[in-house]
Computed example of a mutant assay.
Amino acid sequence: MIRRLLPLAAILSTTALMASQAQADYPERDINATIPWGAGGVTDLVARSVIPHAEEALDESIIPQNRPGGGAVIGVNYVRTQRPDGYNILIGTQDTTLYPVLGVADFDYDDFSVLNVIGQGLVVIAVPADSPFETMEQLVDKVLAEPGTIRMGDVGVGATPHITETIIDSATDADFDVRKVTFGGDGPGITAMLGDHIDFMPLSLPPAVEYLKSGQIRGLAILANERIDLLPDVPAITDALPEAENYLPWGSFQGVFVRKDTPDDVKQTLGDAFETAIGDPQFQDLYNNKLGGVTLNLRGDEAQEYIDNWQALTTWLLYDVGAAKVSPEEFGIARPQGQ
């Protein structure tokens, strides 16, 4: 019996057709969304608020999974090592842009494609409701007078508390030396503050708003150069530390990422779904009016430019105060003009 072999061109054509068909059918099953921070924090809150709208646009389920640890390294690296097929996405934050200069990990978002920068939040420096600190000036004076004794809630190197501490340090004439107590996210940090286990914590505003409004914790300063309508009684940090204005506006951001070598049409499908989700009036109201952030909904070159600018501003800030292990120049990050 003689077997006839298909020509190579026919085999390649058939394979390409099958691959194209598979991608055209995307998504065919549930999509996993890794949140590299713990439950109750700003990233978790934003992710779980936007995902239902993206599910509607995709007509498929997106399963959120918290994988906290290592300043988001564990969760980010998990997605980084999964198949680039669009079934593992990352709801990431700013921290990953700082890994190389801080010596936290040997990767950053160069291994990913950003599908959308969701938005940027503000930061509030908060204390327990019964704290003796009534103003930001009092807290700073106490830290400077008794270095290494005041307990600050933290969530890891390069995260919101760390950068806020660095900005305060840069805006004072002395070393802002605190005793750091590390948690897996803003949520556990707030719980510790409610129990008076820490003296203060810089928090992303979204998970802190209701606690501030109810009086369970108090805000000493907003990391901005003016007060905000959402919390009109909380002063801007520049009231106490005018030099902080050099680094403002600053805040954490959230974005949607996939591995860089994910097929382009899959990226397009996911990007379209999240653009629709972030533009949904219900999510817009939540993020902008209830959580005190600013939705950005950036895609493509605009999204990448935003991340590059954020990385440059913050890495050079860390380097100038001695917090970065190596110069950003070693990674091709140019110093921002005017800094």
Score class of each variant (00 low, 15 high):
160 T>R: 03
158 G>L: 07
177 D>L: 01
174 A>E: 11
159 A>G: 15
165 E>W: 07
142 K>E: 10
164 T>I: 14
165 E>T: 08
150 I>M: 08
176 F>L: 01
147 P>G: 04
165 E>F: 07
153 G>W: 00
150 I>E: 04
159 A>M: 15
164 T>W: 09
142 K>Q: 11
158 G>Y: 05
150 I>W: 05
154 D>H: 11
177 D>S: 05
156 G>F: 05
142 K>D: 09
151 R>I: 05
147 P>H: 03
163 I>Y: 11
143 V>K: 00
159 A>I: 15
159 A>K: 14
181 V>R: 02
177 D>P: 01
174 A>W: 12
171 A>W: 09
177 D>V: 01
159 A>P: 14
174 A>Q: 12
169 D>W: 14
159 A>D: 15
149 T>D: 04
142 K>N: 10
168 I>W: 04
166 T>D: 13
166 T>G: 15
153 G>D: 00
149 T>M: 05
146 E>H: 11
152 M>S: 07
154 D>R: 11
170 S>I: 14
164 T>A: 13
179 R>C: 09
160 T>M: 06
181 V>I: 07
145 A>G: 10
148 G>F: 02
179 R>I: 08
164 T>P: 10
163 I>S: 13
156 G>I: 04
140 V>G: 02
162 H>I: 14
166 T>Y: 11
165 E>S: 10
174 A>C: 12
171 A>V: 09
172 T>H: 04
146 E>G: 10
153 G>C: 01
177 D>A: 03
177 D>G: 02
160 T>P: 03
165 E>V: 06
181 V>C: 05
147 P>Y: 01
174 A>D: 11
179 R>H: 09
160 T>Y: 05
144 L>G: 01
162 H>F: 15
140 V>K: 03
149 T>R: 06
154 D>M: 11
158 G>E: 06
163 I>A: 13
143 V>M: 00
156 G>C: 08
168 I>F: 06
181 V>S: 06
148 G>K: 07
146 E>F: 11
181 V>N: 02
147 P>W: 01
175 D>H: 13
158 G>S: 09
180 K>Q: 05
175 D>I: 11
156 G>L: 07
141 D>H: 13
144 L>C: 04
160 T>A: 07
180 K>T: 02
162 H>L: 15
172 T>D: 05
177 D>C: 03
170 S>Y: 14
144 L>S: 02
175 D>F: 11
160 T>G: 06
159 A>F: 14
151 R>M: 07
161 P>T: 05
140 V>H: 03
164 T>E: 12
143 V>R: 00
154 D>K: 09
178 V>W: 00
167 I>K: 10
166 T>E: 14
144 L>H: 03
164 T>Y: 10
175 D>T: 12
145 A>E: 08
166 T>F: 12
175 D>R: 14
170 S>F: 14
140 V>Y: 05
149 T>Y: 02
166 T>I: 15
161 P>L: 04
173 D>W: 10
163 I>M: 14
162 H>T: 14
162 H>D: 15
143 V>G: 00
178 V>Y: 00
